[in-house]
Design a protein around this nucleic acid. Structure first.
Lengths: 217, 217
DNA sequence: TTCTTTAGTGAACAGTGTTTACTTTTTGAA
DNA sequence: TTCAAAAAGTAAACACTGTTCACTAAAGAA
């Protein structure tokens, strides 16, 4: 019984699609969305520019797929850490650090993922399907961890996990963007406090989480 | 004694320059850098596209000037608050709130100001002239305030003001970007915690500053 | 008034995303 | 195996973009 869940034609199509995406990924990582042109892309995979449009309806759609894949990567890594049995505080700091680290490893991906041309005036959109999106899932991992911290008494009892998660996400996001866009970020003003990127990420994670902590005694 | 510090020709030139900038400002605020095209701009001020290049050497340079002016606006406002004699904690929260509010009022300006195409691999650049830039001055106001907080004992004594300023700036930046790019940000997941933008900005400022505070008793 | 600098222009260059009409290839059924 | 239909791929064009160049018209200084 040949369970050909995918026909040869389909497989071939997916292969070409993947070739396009992989070529796009390479140039996007190095030069961002502006550096990625359909014509250049078509040339590197030896197709005509118009051919790309048999696989993606627009450049935006293509780039969206790169962004979604990128966020899958973040989610996988953060999830792996969240499910660990290491002490809670370490886990929390690890999550923040990992998120920021991956984001800054692919700055163009990260910036693009949050700069969805939008700046929309219609607050109704964008909210639909958030829970299902990778971004939404990452957010739920975060608020889940905060809820856990409140339960075991590490964090202040009056904290609303969803609210706090938004605040912390914003703080993480900020650091990621800073490092992505200001090349010298943690080390600018080298005068008194040259600090490594890694060390600063930890410092920031610490600072952010400290805002949640209960103070015993 | 006619102290003509500026010749009529010069004055006329500046006037045209200002007209270009003001037209550019309007469309940039509404549609961002992508919506701002030299040709469109030239049309609205009734000049030929090439004429723009007698006043600005490139579109980037023109946009840079919009960004710089925008940061002047932020700096002025934050400075005004910082110099106030209101209680320290209130002043600090006010500064954060004001910064984020202005940033989110002109999301395209703010996002563009931090997305200087860079993502540069050369960490030497960008550091030069930082102290003199508006961004650099805003940063100094912030670290100055933190130093003050440490001195009067509101903040933990072991805090390095410059380091903490970077962390807090990142957190502020994150919220500003979130609100700018996710239209529903503070209110997404309306299920349990619909919160106004203003209220959330205050919540975040509180959260961020709490990470610095000393705990008495 | 002449000479020189400046302001402003039309046309072109090189690039972009995208569409349309067209040809070639592949496919599934008769 | 043949044959119509569907899919893959293409060349050429459209409507844009930022930018430059050779050029004219105007203003300023001598």
């Amino acid at each position: 019984m040949t369970v050909s869940v995918s026909s040869p034609a389909e497989r071939r199509r997916n292969k070409v699609r993947a070739r396009i995406l992989s070529a796009a990924e390479r140039v996007f990582a190095r030069e961002g969305a502006n550096g990625l042109s359909i014509r250049r892309l078509a040339e590197t995979i030896d197709y005509s520019p118009a051919a790309i449009y048999k696989y993606f309806s627009s450049k935006d759609e293509l780039v969206d797929e790169l962004k979604e894949t990128f966020f899958e990567l973040i989610l996988e890594n953060v999830n792996r850490i969240a499910d660990t049995t290491t002490p809670f505080a370490d886990r929390a700091r690890d999550c923040v650090g990992t998120y920021v680290r991956i984001a800054t490893d692919k700055p163009y991906h990260y910036a693009a993922a949050f700069a969805g041309e939008s700046v929309s005036q219609t607050p109704v959109d964008g909210e639909a399907g958030f829970d299902e999106s990778k971004k939404g899932q990452a957010f739920m991992v975060l608020s889940g961890m905060i809820a856990e911290g409140v339960e075991i008494g590490t964090f202040r009892p009056e904290i609303d996990p969803v609210l706090a998660a938004k605040s912390i996400w914003a703080s993480m996001h900020g650091l990621a963007m800073m490092i992505a866009h200001i090349p010298t970020f943690p080390a600018f003003k080298p005068s008194q406090d040259a600090m490594s990127r890694e060390a600063f990420i930890e410092y920031h994670a610490d600072q952010v989480i400290r805002g949640l902590e209960a103070h015993h005694g």
